[in-house]
Design a protein around this nucleic acid. Structure first.
Lengths: 337, 337
DNA sequence: CGTTCTACGTTTAACGTTCTACGTTTCCCT
DNA sequence: AGGGAAACGTAGAACGTTAAACGTAGAACG
């Protein structure tokens, strides 16, 4: 049997009895609250340690804080996730917070239900990473719980903070690198028209591309992929079949650039001799020798760190809104030329 | 400000008042407990719906169940994860359970602390997917909470259930396919000697390979990669530099097979003409045209479904232990020959 | 030497559920 | 019609923690 019939549930009461003090005293020690002498604290700590006591998050949630924050990731294939989470956890460790990670599978329904779960669990705050949910939804949830959103531009939001890599700059960087190589005919392969609703979250990279091209006095040509699943192959093929294939292409994501480079090479189009390709996100696959795709990299660790600090501040009582931005870097590989 | 000064916290009491019944009646409806008339249920449901009430998981955890189960994944790069989780969630939906997913980052410390968090949150049960933790640890935790482990052979465990794809059969399948092609010189590239402790969790695939080769009267040659990070490249290179390169190779994972196929091709070794390669896990990358790697596929959806059912049964009171096994399938691609 | 602080610790309500008893109805049989 | 069981609903005590309010003793002050 799993549960022995008599589980003498280890509670704050046990600790109090063991240390010979009141329950409230233990609670104070636990929370680092005001009004505990060093000797008391030491005494209680010793008992806690020896008994192996851990406070019940559930019970905590009833009155105070749970010291748990939820991290919701929209899509676990996101290559910078591990590093980002490390960044978050680094900050949390220092302030005895724990985190629980939820994976939204890129589906709005799962995302909402996960967020609701987290609220129901009385978590103290939420970090949403590249959520698919629209700004309206985000705003609605943010009224119920302190929230920071990473990788989802929403500059007008005033009920939650955002942390983003500067997508416009990233695209600029990549475009300028292509221009510096001397290419004149450069086009962009961007994401579907209204992926995830009609907010312009996904347009910053286009803006960066556009402004660089315009500054160079060159025409701005942007192709947009369709959203339907399975259409990616077709759309990429259509692009490669263009009568006037450009000399270079900037892809919105490595998720497009990698299949593209594959398809191009297997059609005998040489990369970068015939077509230079730059992606975005620096997916680990990009560095495989057969792929060797140049890509824009975001410092995920910093992204996570800032998000966590921001959330902690918000939980701590800050009511103003912060929108942070950090600078990406271009990783040069052979596909760039 | 985030929280309006007067949050008239929507509780079960509010609902009871609204529906004109007792608090306990609402609770019964919520839990689908015995002793509620249809009219009562309908009435209460209507109130719940209209008010948008959601029960506090934290409060629930204090007395009863939280209707939340924790899914801990050892490593989010695992390609069959999304489908597995879908399988789990499919089962859970039907019984009004929610799930929270934790990502262990392949680090034992994070794994343990996440499991502890989940226990502290009074979750009703845990599904561990390909955990790095050793059997001892697993057994210890399983005494505190109902638990099912997926993708981690531990046949001697008697305090938690396991669900696994039949790794031995998968390796057999792949080996036999290579034998059927007429190859005689087949070797295996397996995982480090004592990855994650000295249990033989990772040996089943070797066993499958070994028994097929022995049955065919051929020599059994297994290379083991080292565990240290960064050593993969070296080890693969060393393999390809072998004076007597085999005609075909079975890799323990696509995580090895994909870099291998890359390295081989970029050295001018033709796949499959010079070297046939079969991987394991059917990683999405395996199907890229430039890779086109044959691989053993596990039905992740079924894996998840069985795990969830198993856990629910255990939560429901089953005390015996179940070890389930399901059959994998070989996906043939050009790397097979 | 009384009075007021200050620092520490305790008492005691909450918090939002569940669940065990227990009291009413309602229904079904003879 | 009478009796018993089943069905329905209620009251109220948990659950483990926090936090506001409340002592209390010694120190500092006038």
């Amino acid at each position: 049997m799993n549960k022995p019939s008599k589980a003498p549930n280890l509670t704050i009461k046990t600790v109090a009895a063991d240390a010979g003090v009141s329950v409230a005293a233990v609670s104070k020690v636990l929370r680092g609250a005001y009004g505990v002498s060093d000797s008391l604290r030491e005494n209680v700590m010793e008992s806690i340690e020896r008994l192996g006591y851990r406070p019940s998050t559930a019970a905590r949630g009833m009155r105070g804080k749970t010291y748990t924050i939820g991290i919701l990731v929209g899509d676990m294939s996101n290559p910078f996730l591990p590093e980002l989470i490390l960044g978050v956890q680094g900050v949390l460790e220092a302030s005895n917070y724990k985190s629980m990670i939820g994976v939204g599978q890129g589906r709005r329904k799962i995302e909402s239900s996960l967020i609701e779960s987290m609220i129901d669990n009385r978590m103290d705050g939420l970090i949403l990473v590249a959520p698919r949910l629209s700004g309206d939804f985000l705003a609605r949830f943010s009224r119920q719980i302190p929230m920071v959103v990473v990788g989802h531009h929403e500059p007008s939001a005033d009920t939650f903070d955002t942390v983003n890599s500067d997508d416009e700059m990233g695209a600029s960087l990549a475009t300028r690198a292509l221009l510096d190589k001397g290419y004149k005919s450069i086009e962009m392969l961007s994401v579907a028209d209204k992926v995830g609703g009609d907010f312009d979250v996904f347009r910053s990279r286009e803006t960066g591309f556009q402004s660089e091209m315009a500054a160079a006095g060159l025409p701005v040509i942007v192709h947009r992929l369709r959203e339907a699943s399975g259409s990616l192959e077709e759309d990429l093929a259509a692009f490669l079949d263009l009568p006037q294939l450009p000399r270079a292409v900037l892809c919105w994501s490595d998720l497009h650039a990698i299949p593209l480079i594959n398809m191009a090479k297997s059609r005998g189009i040489r990369v970068p001799e015939d077509l230079a390709i730059v992606g975005y996100d620096n997916n680990p696959i990009a560095q495989l020798p057969l792929i060797d795709l140049a890509s824009v990299d975001q410092d995920a660790h910093v992204l996570g760190k800032i998000a966590a600090q921001s959330l902690l501040a918000r939980i701590g009582g800050r009511t103003t809104t912060e929108h942070a931005t950090i600078d990406p870097v271009l990783i040069r590989r052979s596909s760039l030329g």
